[in-house]
């Protein structure tokens, strides 16, 4: 199984350890990983700011990089959702269609395609889980508190396979952290307040780590945690699932 690794631009630049963990984890599961070197970004920053038309160049570049794989996997629900909903390439409509239907967020890929049921992972810490909205409400990685529907969570099922990990859920199980793409700067006041409130909710559980499936949310929470000198760390779920004794 040939898996194209899509590493969102800000992970590539600022959080390479998340990409490395994602890659190592998938390799452990027996996937053949390729990382197309000319990839950049999914185009979401422009599109969510109202300039979807300006992401055409990104789209073409994305299609050119990911046409030759069985699946595309990324450690980001948000970027995957954007590709699924908006990737278009007038010159290569079929290739774009293939990508839209074969791109997976990491925990979704582990659960639905690789059907992982056990993991050789060890992470003896108290962890709070943050549900990122695009993964949850967009990709349906877990059930949603608003709906009358059976409960499930792909990422939490995976975290439950990790030895030593004590999981704590915040009281508002799926409230947004306030990152929201360019929202985080254009609506700075509300964005930060939302982030502070998420952190407070996790702090009440005395967690050591706030974990999530989207580094963008984590980067925002980390910025607030560091500013107040907190000892709480943020980690991507790939790093936890890839941890061993």
């Amino acid at each position: 199984m040939k898996v194209g690794l899509f590493i969102p631009c800000y992970i590539d630049q600022f959080y390479p350890m998340v990409a490395i963990a994602t890659m190592q984890l998938l390799e452990k599961m027996g996937c053949e990983i390729v990382f197309p070197l000319e990839q950049t970004c999914c185009g979401q920053p422009m599109a969510n700011s109202g300039f979807n038309t300006l992401s055409k160049g990104c789209d073409r570049n994305f299609v050119a990089n990911f046409s030759d794989v069985d699946f595309i996997v990324a450690p980001s629900g948000s970027c995957v959702l954007h590709v699924k909903e908006h990737l278009a390439d007038a010159q290569n409509p079929e290739a774009a269609e293939f990508i839209r239907t074969h791109i997976f967020e990491l925990t979704e890929f582990l659960t639905d395609v690789l059907k992982v049921e056990k993991l050789d992972a060890h992470f003896p810490f108290s962890v709070g889980w943050h549900n990122s909205c695009h993964g949850q409400r967009g990709l349906h990685l877990s059930s949603m508190s608003e709906l009358v529907a059976p409960h499930f969570s792909k990422p939490i099922s995976l975290l439950n396979m990790v030895n030593g990990l004590q999981l704590h859920l915040p009281s508002r199980i799926d409230e947004c952290c306030g990152f929201g793409g360019t929202f985080c700067v254009f609506e700075e006041a509300v964005s930060v307040k939302m982030g502070k409130d998420r952190i407070k909710d996790h702090e009440e559980n005395e967690v050591e780590v706030i974990a999530g499936g989207d580094v963008s949310c984590l980067m925002h929470l980390e910025g607030i945690l560091k500013r107040k000198g907190s000892k709480v760390r943020v980690m991507h779920i790939a790093e936890i699932l890839n941890s061993q004794k």
Binding site: I7, A19, I20, F35, V185, E222
Partner: peptide, 25 residues
């Protein structure tokens, strides 16, 4: 920089994932 008003900037690593990948894989 509205980001920095109430948040620290992320730490910048010396190499990107792409750099690491080229070296290691």
């Amino acid at each position: 920089n509205p980001w920095y008003k109430q948040r620290e900037m992320p730490e910048a690593p010396s190499e990107s994932f792409r750099d690491w990948y080229k070296k290691n894989r």
